[in-house]
């Protein structure tokens, strides 16, 4: 009996191992091809580099040059970090306020924000980019406002769900101690919200870092984020350098993998919490 279970475990382990390798295969394939010459990629992607086809890291140089990868990385990082920071700060404030202050306006606002979650982006893509232009938000700083507005729904929803579960007594004690609403929120409530802040931050990071259409329409002509740079490499310049493409895919994946491996525990927890609440 014991023996049979061990064998079954081994079989399952091997099965999982094969699956895991299959899972990693596409990424490894891109990595391998990024070292091959541009003409040896599309037709024979599975062939290992040989002396003839090996291109070293030349693709990385041509890709970085053609796409302007370094500024793209800078824009992506800037927009993601500051948008996420802004979203966490302002939506937690809003969520706390409209959860605690019961009024018709509060619940109207709450439902309006939740409603925005189900609206597909295509519905507002044209009018939003026009609005962004009128308000001079079509630059890497202004786009933060758009992300705050478009990301508010989900974030307020998650924060509200959590805040409802916090006992009122803690805040009341703070008020008795002489705290105004601002102190109460920043000194008492926000520390309690820390785990959920991480959840909200992670969900928004995953969305904003990878977002393509919104930045493409709003700032894409002047400021290319990483997804826009990759797409531009495919369609733009009347040319399609597969080598540079592979190298750019590797460079685009790398930061997110590092981010994931270093904050893995928070990310998985955050995703579960976000999904269960959402």
């Amino acid at each position: 009996m014991k023996n049979r279970e061990v064998i079954r475990e081994r079989i399952l382990f091997i099965l999982l191992l094969i699956l895991a390798l299959l899972y990693l295969f596409p990424m490894l394939l891109v990595l391998m091809n990024s070292f091959k010459g541009r003409f040896y990629i599309s037709d024979t992607p599975f062939a290992l580099p040989t002396a003839e086809t090996f291109a070293g890291i030349k693709n990385y140089f041509s890709g970085i040059e053609k796409t302007g990868f370094l500024p793209a990385f800078g824009y992506s990082l800037f927009i993601t970090v500051f948008s996420v920071g802004t979203i966490v700060l302002f939506t937690s404030m809003t969520a706390w306020c409209i959860t605690r202050v019961k009024s018709k306006f509060s619940s109207f606002l709450y439902y309006l924000l939740v409603f925005s979650m189900i609206v597909p982006f295509q519905m507002v893509m044209f009018t939003m980019s026009k609005m962004a232009n009128i308000c001079h938000l079509d630059n890497p700083v202004g786009i933060i406002v758009l992300y705050l507005g478009f990301g508010a729904g989900l974030s307020v929803f998650i924060f509200s769900g959590f805040i409802k579960g916090i006992p009122h007594e803690i805040e009341e004690a703070a008020v008795i101690d002489g705290c105004g609403p601002i102190q109460t929120f920043f000194l008492v409530v926000l520390p309690i919200l820390k785990p959920i802040c991480i959840t909200v931050a992670i969900l928004n990071t995953m969305w904003i870092w990878n977002d393509y259409l919104l930045p493409y329409l709003v700032i894409g002509n002047n400021y290319k984020t990483i997804p826009i740079a990759v797409q531009y490499l495919q369609g733009g310049y009347g040319s399609r350098d597969m080598g540079a493409m592979m190298a750019m895919l590797v460079l685009a994946i790398l930061p997110i993998i590092i981010f994931y491996l270093s904050l893995q525990k928070y990310i998985i927890k955050g995703v579960v919490a976000g999904a269960v609440k959402g």
């Binding site: 500024p71 990082l77 800037f78 630059n139």
Partner: peptide, 22 residues
């Protein structure tokens, strides 16, 4: 949380080098 703040601080520093100039 210290290490998290540390990471954030580094990020902000890296970022300031990239801030797009108008």
């Amino acid at each position: 949380s210290m290490s998290l703040i540390g990471i954030l601080a580094v990020l902000v520093m890296v970022l300031s080098a990239f801030i797009p100039s108008a």
